Amino acid sequence: SDLEELEKFAKTFKQRRIKLGFTQGDVGLAMGKLYGNDFSQTTISRFEALNLSFKNMCKLKPLLEKWLNDAESSP
């Protein structure tokens, strides 16, 4: 289901973010620079904790996926 997908992604996202050495705040700032939407550390934290509305989670997921792919592919 969509919800299970989101839960899986949130977990994976957190693990990969930590492995890359980024804080939640770093992610929020980087996404602001890249996509012009500033995200607070709290928002990233709540995403990882599945603590946002389903609609908000769905809106954030593609942006976070893109950020993660970019972060992992940059030298």
Results as ranks from 00 to 15, higher is better:
50 L>R: 13
56 N>S: 10
5 E>M: 13
48 E>N: 00
70 D>Q: 12
50 L>G: 14
2 D>N: 07
65 E>I: 14
57 M>K: 02
53 S>V: 02
38 D>N: 14
46 R>F: 03
45 S>V: 08
73 S>I: 15
60 L>V: 11
46 R>D: 13
63 L>Q: 07
47 F>M: 03
53 S>L: 01
50 L>E: 05
57 M>V: 04
61 K>W: 05
48 E>I: 00
54 F>A: 13
74 S>P: 09
74 S>F: 07
29 L>I: 13
18 I>S: 08
68 L>C: 05
45 S>F: 04
58 C>G: 10
18 I>E: 15
64 L>P: 01
59 K>V: 07
50 L>D: 04
65 E>R: 04
66 K>V: 08
48 E>M: 01
70 D>M: 07
57 M>Y: 02
41 Q>P: 10
19 K>A: 03
53 S>P: 10
28 G>Q: 02
72 E>G: 07
55 K>G: 13
65 E>H: 09
74 S>V: 14
41 Q>T: 09
57 M>C: 05
52 L>W: 04
48 E>H: 00
57 M>D: 02
56 N>P: 04
35 Y>M: 15
51 N>L: 10
63 L>W: 08
68 L>V: 09
44 I>K: 00
60 L>W: 08
59 K>C: 07
22 F>S: 03
31 M>T: 02
27 V>D: 01
57 M>S: 11
29 L>H: 08
47 F>Q: 00
31 M>C: 02
74 S>H: 15
50 L>P: 02
58 C>N: 12
66 K>T: 12
25 G>V: 05
37 N>L: 12
66 K>C: 08
72 E>C: 08
68 L>A: 06
73 S>T: 09
68 L>E: 02
62 P>D: 04
71 A>H: 15
45 S>L: 06
57 M>F: 04
70 D>N: 08
47 F>G: 00
61 K>Q: 11
73 S>H: 11
60 L>D: 02
71 A>M: 11
64 L>C: 06
64 L>G: 01
61 K>C: 04
57 M>Q: 03
67 W>P: 01
41 Q>A: 14
56 N>Y: 11
58 C>S: 14
50 L>C: 08
68 L>M: 06
59 K>G: 07
56 N>F: 09
54 F>K: 13
2 D>E: 13
72 E>W: 05
33 K>R: 15
68 L>F: 03
45 S>C: 14
69 N>R: 12
18 I>W: 03
56 N>I: 10
61 K>F: 03
32 G>R: 15
54 F>L: 09
12 T>R: 11
52 L>N: 02
58 C>F: 13
12 T>Q: 13
59 K>T: 12
63 L>A: 14
52 L>F: 04
31 M>V: 02
64 L>S: 01
55 K>E: 13
50 L>M: 11
62 P>W: 03
56 N>G: 09
42 T>S: 05
51 N>V: 07
75 P>E: 11
69 N>G: 14
24 Q>C: 05
59 K>L: 12
66 K>Q: 10
74 S>L: 06
55 K>C: 10
63 L>N: 11
51 N>E: 08
37 N>W: 08
71 A>K: 14
47 F>N: 00
37 N>R: 14
67 W>E: 01
48 E>S: 00
69 N>Y: 07
48 E>D: 00
58 C>W: 14
45 S>N: 12
5 E>H: 14
54 F>I: 12
56 N>E: 12
53 S>I: 02
18 I>P: 00
54 F>P: 09
9 F>L: 02
37 N>D: 14
75 P>G: 13
5 E>C: 12
11 K>H: 15
46 R>N: 13
29 L>F: 07
26 D>R: 03
21 G>S: 02
63 L>P: 07
29 L>P: 02
58 C>P: 02
25 G>Y: 15
54 F>H: 14
68 L>Q: 03
72 E>R: 06
28 G>V: 03
50 L>A: 13
68 L>Y: 03
44 I>Q: 00
46 R>M: 12
45 S>I: 06
51 N>P: 00
37 N>I: 10
29 L>W: 06
69 N>H: 15
24 Q>S: 08
55 K>F: 10
59 K>P: 01
70 D>T: 15
18 I>T: 09
52 L>Q: 04
46 R>H: 10
75 P>C: 08
29 L>G: 09
51 N>A: 11
12 T>S: 08
3 L>R: 15
63 L>T: 09
73 S>F: 08
73 S>P: 08
52 L>Y: 05
66 K>Y: 06
50 L>V: 11
65 E>F: 06
53 S>M: 02
48 E>K: 01
18 I>K: 10
64 L>R: 01
17 R>H: 02
44 I>W: 01
20 L>K: 02
45 S>Q: 13
18 I>L: 11
75 P>R: 09
58 C>I: 13
48 E>G: 00
33 K>G: 15
51 N>F: 02
62 P>I: 07
5 E>I: 11
51 N>H: 15
57 M>T: 04
68 L>S: 03
61 K>N: 01
16 R>V: 03
50 L>F: 14
41 Q>H: 12
60 L>F: 07
63 L>S: 09
52 L>T: 07
60 L>N: 03
62 P>N: 04
61 K>V: 08
10 A>G: 08
45 S>W: 06
49 A>I: 02
56 N>V: 07
75 P>F: 05
67 W>C: 03
37 N>K: 11
37 N>S: 12
28 G>C: 03
37 N>C: 10
67 W>H: 02
53 S>E: 08
73 S>M: 07
66 K>E: 08
21 G>M: 02
55 K>L: 12
62 P>T: 05
69 N>K: 06
53 S>W: 00
60 L>Q: 04
61 K>E: 03
65 E>K: 14
52 L>K: 01
71 A>Q: 14
19 K>D: 15
41 Q>Y: 08
71 A>W: 08
75 P>N: 08
16 R>G: 06
47 F>P: 00
56 N>C: 11
49 A>V: 13
45 S>A: 13
54 F>R: 14
18 I>M: 12
52 L>R: 01
61 K>P: 01
28 G>A: 09
68 L>P: 01
68 L>G: 02
57 M>N: 05
29 L>K: 14
71 A>D: 03
64 L>Q: 01
41 Q>L: 06
41 Q>E: 14
45 S>E: 14
55 K>Q: 15
58 C>R: 12
63 L>C: 10
73 S>Y: 06
42 T>N: 14
57 M>A: 11
30 A>G: 03
37 N>P: 14
27 V>I: 03
66 K>F: 04
66 K>D: 13
51 N>I: 05
66 K>L: 08
29 L>S: 12
52 L>A: 06
66 K>M: 05
71 A>Y: 03
56 N>D: 13
70 D>A: 09
49 A>S: 15
61 K>L: 04
19 K>S: 15
17 R>V: 00
73 S>L: 08
21 G>Q: 02
67 W>M: 03
67 W>T: 01
62 P>Y: 01
54 F>Q: 11
5 E>W: 06
2 D>G: 12
67 W>D: 01
5 E>K: 14
57 M>G: 05
26 D>N: 05
50 L>N: 15
55 K>P: 05
54 F>D: 08
68 L>K: 01
6 L>F: 04
49 A>Q: 15
65 E>D: 10
57 M>R: 01
75 P>W: 05
50 L>W: 07
46 R>C: 03
69 N>P: 03
48 E>P: 00
19 K>L: 15
44 I>A: 01
39 F>S: 08
53 S>C: 06
67 W>I: 02
44 I>D: 00
63 L>V: 10
64 L>E: 00
60 L>C: 10
5 E>F: 07
54 F>T: 13
55 K>N: 05
71 A>S: 09
46 R>Q: 13
60 L>R: 02
70 D>H: 06
74 S>Y: 07
48 E>L: 01
67 W>S: 01
54 F>W: 11
59 K>Q: 10
59 K>F: 15
48 E>Y: 00
41 Q>I: 08
48 E>A: 01
49 A>L: 04
60 L>K: 07
55 K>H: 06
57 M>E: 01
67 W>G: 01
70 D>C: 04
46 R>Y: 07
58 C>L: 11
69 N>W: 13
31 M>R: 01
50 L>K: 09
69 N>S: 13
47 F>T: 01
70 D>E: 14
59 K>D: 10
72 E>T: 08
25 G>D: 02
51 N>S: 14
64 L>M: 07
74 S>T: 10
52 L>G: 05
57 M>P: 01
65 E>V: 07
72 E>K: 06
29 L>R: 13
63 L>R: 11
45 S>D: 09
51 N>Y: 05
41 Q>V: 07
52 L>I: 05
10 A>L: 00
52 L>D: 11
71 A>P: 08
37 N>A: 13
56 N>Q: 15
53 S>N: 14
17 R>D: 00
52 L>P: 00
61 K>T: 04
69 N>I: 13
56 N>L: 12
54 F>E: 13
47 F>R: 00
69 N>D: 14
51 N>W: 03
70 D>L: 07
28 G>R: 04
57 M>L: 11
